[in-house]
């Protein structure tokens, strides 16, 4: 139970005449990497937002590590699951990379030394040394994306959800991102990756789920 995300008979739709998820059930093992793929509008990002509590299911339950998400606040969900948005601009808040990595932990009252140490570790891991004091808005898209992932990892989540992590990244940056994700596997942090990138699916998808119109059309072990 503690390592599972369970979606039970979930219903969700944006409009009355456009049904998306109907009696949708899924179990995700939080120790593994699952990839969700499918065409645009198949419900991939919506599913991730439902798991994160950003959207609320109309029916059914989402159980996160044994707790029903209905009874959890966004901040409680965010403590357990790191979420990286498709567009990183909307999750960067401060005036420097180092501040971006530390502000949330410091606001939560964590010890400064420990937070700084972890931030330095992230800067090294995500190759952001040169951008340490740069205003995040002036970073390249790839750097912003890496910073967003690093920031999500600062609270040591049990699970990480990445929405289109390879979008707008060049080949080298994708290789770099793959290496980082592999390191997370060593740390036992499972992932849910939403992507269209076939090579990335092949490399990371221990389990690959194909969505179409809010339905699972294929669910296979890679």
């Amino acid at each position: 139970m503690d390592n599972l995300i369970e979606i039970k008979n979930m219903k969700y739709q944006y409009h009355k005449d456009k049904k998306l998820f109907e009696k949708f059930s899924l179990q995700l093992d939080c120790k593994k990497t699952t990839v969700i793929t499918g065409n645009n509008g198949s419900g991939k990002t919506t599913l991730s937002k439902l798991i994160m509590g950003i959207l609320k299911p109309l029916e059914g339950d989402i159980i996160l590590f044994g707790d029903n998400s209905k009874n959890m606040t966004l901040s409680e969900i965010g403590q357990g699951i790191g979420y990286v948005f498709q567009y990183p601009e909307r999750q960067l808040f401060t005036t420097s990379v180092i501040d971006e990595l530390t502000f949330a932990q410091l606001l939560k009252g964590e010890k400064k030394e420990a937070v700084m140490e972890k931030a330095e570790e992230m800067i090294e891991l995500f190759a952001l040394e040169k951008a340490r004091n740069v205003y995040p808005f002036f970073l390249s898209y790839g750097e912003k994306k890496r910073l967003a992932i690093a920031s999500a990892l600062m609270s040591s989540p049990k699970y990480l959800i990445l929405d289109e992590p390879t979008a707008s990244l060049d080949k080298d940056k994708i290789i770099n991102l793959s290496m980082i994700l592999n390191k997370l596997e060593e740390k036992n942090v499972g992932k849910l990756i939403i992507t269209h990138d076939k090579n990335f699916i092949k490399e990371h998808g221990e389990r690959v789920i194909y969505l179409d119109g809010g339905r699972i059309v294929k669910d296979e072990a890679n």
Binding site: M52, I54, T73, L74, S75, E76, I77, G78, Q79, Y83, F85, R90, Q91, F93, A104, L107, K108, S151, A152, S155
Partner: peptide, 13 residues
């Protein structure tokens, strides 16, 4: 969206 993103960092407003 930004308020949501902030809360997902574990900050309970």
């Amino acid at each position: 969206d930004m308020v949501v993103a902030l809360q997902l960092r574990g900050i309970d407003l």
